[in-house]
């Protein structure tokens, strides 16, 4: 067997992956800084008028782009929904962060118990947990809505946080329990001999060792919540509590929408996740690498 991959093939696949993942991001970035009249006019070069940040100005301040101040301009192209983007980013941040924290608070101990202890009903409950994501979300919308309505949580962020936590929890528990199970049993036995209680063994030994995995699963829970649309749409209330996925959908639903404005909103919505991935991912990779070096 030849070790390593053919560099040409590696490059080819890397390029394809970048094209499909990074491509849309780049396109939306370009689209956001070029005004509509140039975007839609194939006779003009893309950057013939330089960079234009008017749509950004509109999103954050509400001041209309100059070209739409003209009498003849179609005012409907500048959708009001775009004005909700900054607030919705904050809302999504709060929801996704809370859902991530809840996931780790509940998921990490649960995964630890599944990985290290034997208790009645362990197999059944684990199976239930792992199979639950197989139920199509659409089928759950109505029952979940009714449940949250009884609890008085429809139209609140708390309701969305709960649903997102529940959606990500099976993955958190599965990934973390695999990681906890891989830890050598002797370390935990040593901890028992070193006067650790069950909780202390979890808190002082298992958790610090699992930090890279916890970072990864936390990030996963965050992004799952950040991009979730259906439950967010059904359960969210007025503009003040609406998450970004719902606002983006509303924006895209406007068939007349200004391309430039739409791209601006898309790019603004991507930025927080990009920042998060860059920071958390480095930590996760470092952690995984240091854990891998043993002997």
């Amino acid at each position: 067997m030849q070790r390593g991959l053919n560099p040409f093939l590696t490059f080819l696949f890397a390029t394809l992956i970048v094209l499909f993942t990074g491509g849309p991001v780049i396109l939306s970035l370009i689209g956001s800084v070029v005004p509509d009249r140039i975007l839609l006019d194939s006779s003009k070069a893309l950057f013939s008028e330089g960079l234009n940040f008017e749509t950004y100005r509109y999103v954050f301040t509400g001041q209309l782009p100059d070209s739409y101040l003209a009498e003849t301009a179609n005012r409907a192209m500048i959708s009001d929904a775009a004005r909700q983007v900054p607030q919705s980013l904050l809302n999504s941040g709060i929801i996704a962060f809370s859902s991530m924290v809840l996931n780790l608070l509940i998921g990490a101990p649960a995964a630890y118990v599944f990985a290290r202890y034997v208790f009645p009903g362990k197999k059944l409950t684990f199976m239930f947990l792992i199979l639950s994501p197989l139920v199509p979300a659409v089928a759950l919308v109505t029952p979940v809505y009714i449940m949250l309505q009884t609890l008085g949580l429809v139209g609140t962020q708390a309701g969305i946080i709960l649903v997102h936590t529940a959606k990500a929890l099976p993955f958190t528990v599965l990934i973390l329990s695999v990681f906890f199970r891989k830890m050598p049993a002797e370390i935990f036995e040593a901890a028992v001999l070193d006067h650790c209680s069950r909780f202390q063994t979890f808190w002082r030994i298992a958790l610090p060792l699992a930090l890279p995995s916890i970072g990864a699963t936390g990030l996963f829970a965050f992004m799952l919540s950040y991009s979730e649309y259906m439950f967010s749409m059904v359960l969210s209330g007025d503009a003040a509590t609406r998450p970004v996925s719902v606002v983006m959908a509303a924006l895209a639903r406007n068939t007349d929408v200004s391309w430039s404005l739409l791209n601006t909103a898309i790019f603004i919505a991507i930025v927080p996740t990009l920042v998060l991935v860059v920071f958390v991912w480095r930590f996760v990779v470092e952690g995984l690498l240091s854990g891998a070096v043993k002997g």
């Binding site: 050598p184 370390i187 043993k294």
Partner: peptide, 8 residues
């Protein structure tokens, strides 16, 4: 322990 079982 055989594997030393040190806390990494």
């Amino acid at each position: 322990f055989q594997s030393y079982a040190l806390y990494p």
